[in-house]
Amino acid sequence: MTLNGDSDQANGKPRAILFDWDNTLVDSWPTIIDALNVTLEAYGKTPWTMDEARARVRKSMRDSFPELFGDQWRQAGEVFYERYAAIHVERLQPLPGAEEMLKSLVDAGIHLSVVSNKKGDFLRQESKHLGWDRYFGVLVGALDAEKDKPAIEVVELALAPSGIEKGPDVWFAGDADIDLECAYKAGCMPILIREHPPGPGELDSHPPAKHFPNCDALCKYIDTM
C-alpha cells in the first residue's frame, strides 16, 4: 500500500475496524506512567516524565523491557504488573465519545476488534469492566499471538472470528506510529486518532490515510458514507 498523507483511499466504508486501546479508546497514561516509574525506581533508574512516556511507550513488554532492564526484564515486568494490577481498573477512563462511536459502528454492521500491546488479561479485564465486550469480536493483547504489534499475526487473530481478510477495507485505528506501521504491514488502512495531526516528518515512514482528532470525528465521517 502506498499512501501520501490524508488519502482518498479511505473513502470507502470499512468492513472492519481494528482499534488500538490505550489512548485511542481509553485514557491510560496516568496509570501507565505510575506503574512504569515504580518499576524504574525499583531498579535505580530515573523516572520518566509524562512527555517522555508519551514519546517512548509503544512496544509490548516482551519487546521493550529487555532494552530497559537487560537480563532482569522479566523480574522488572513482575514489578510493573503488580503495580498496574493494583490501580488500573479504578483509574480507567473512557475517552470522550468512545462508547457512542463503538455503538454506532456496530449498529452500522462494521466488525470491531481491539489490537493492543497491553497484556491480554488486563485488556479484557478493562473491557469487561466498562461493559464493552459486546462491541468487539475479539480483544487481542500482548502475548495472545505468536508476536505482538506491529506484527501481522495480531491482525490475523483479530479478524479471525469475522472471516474478513486483511486488506484496505479493514481500518487499523490508533494514536501512535506503531499502529500505523502495523496497518501497513498487514495491508490495512492506517487511521490516526489523536488530537493533534502529525508533525513535519513525524510519520513519514507510515503516514496515515486519514487523521481524526477524536472518536466523534471518526464516527461522523463514517456516518456520511
Rank of each mutant, 00 (worst) to 15 (best):
E181A: 15
F172D: 03
A158K: 07
G174F: 15
I152A: 07
F172N: 00
A160M: 03
D179H: 03
A183E: 10
A160V: 09
A183L: 05
W171M: 02
L159C: 12
V154Q: 13
L157F: 12
K149E: 00
A183D: 11
E146G: 09
G174C: 12
G163D: 01
A160L: 11
V170D: 00
E156W: 01
D175T: 14
I178Y: 13
I178L: 15
D144G: 08
L180M: 14
L180C: 12
G174K: 08
A186K: 06
A173M: 13
D179M: 07
D169G: 02
E146Q: 10
F172C: 08
E165T: 15
D148R: 00
E146F: 07
F172L: 05
Y184Q: 01
E156S: 04
A183P: 05
P150D: 08
P161D: 11
Y184D: 03
V155C: 12
A145S: 14
K149R: 02
P150T: 08
G167V: 15
V170A: 00
A173R: 09
K166G: 06
D179L: 07
E146A: 11
K147Y: 04
G174H: 13
I152F: 05
I178M: 11
K149Y: 02
K149P: 05
G167T: 14
D179P: 06
G167F: 14
L159M: 02
F172S: 02
K149G: 08
A173G: 09
A173W: 06
K149L: 00
A173Q: 10
F172P: 00
I152T: 12
A158C: 06
P168F: 11
A158Y: 12
E146K: 13
I178A: 08
D177M: 13
F172H: 11
V155R: 09
A183G: 08
V154M: 09
L159Q: 05
D169Q: 10
P168L: 15
A176Q: 10
F172Y: 04
A186P: 10
E181Y: 13
P150N: 04
E153N: 13
A176F: 03
K185T: 07
A183Y: 10
A173T: 09
A158P: 04
A151N: 15
D179A: 03
I164R: 05
A145Q: 03
L180S: 10
I178Q: 11
V170N: 05
E146I: 09
K147F: 05
C182H: 10
D177H: 15
A183W: 10
D177F: 14
A186D: 02
E156Y: 02
P168K: 11
K185D: 12
D148Q: 04
K185W: 01
K147E: 07
A151G: 08
L157H: 06
A158I: 05
V170Q: 01
E146P: 01
P161K: 07
A145N: 01
A176L: 09
G174W: 13
D169R: 08
L157C: 10
E181L: 15
E165H: 14
A160Q: 15
G163H: 05
L180K: 09
K149V: 00
A173K: 06
S162G: 14
S162H: 11
D177C: 13
A145G: 03
A151F: 14
E153Y: 14
A145W: 08
P168E: 12
K147N: 13
F172T: 02
W171P: 03
D179F: 00
L180Y: 08
K147W: 10
D144L: 04
E146L: 09
P161C: 09
E165L: 15
V170P: 04
G174E: 13
I164S: 08
D169V: 03
V170K: 00
V155P: 04
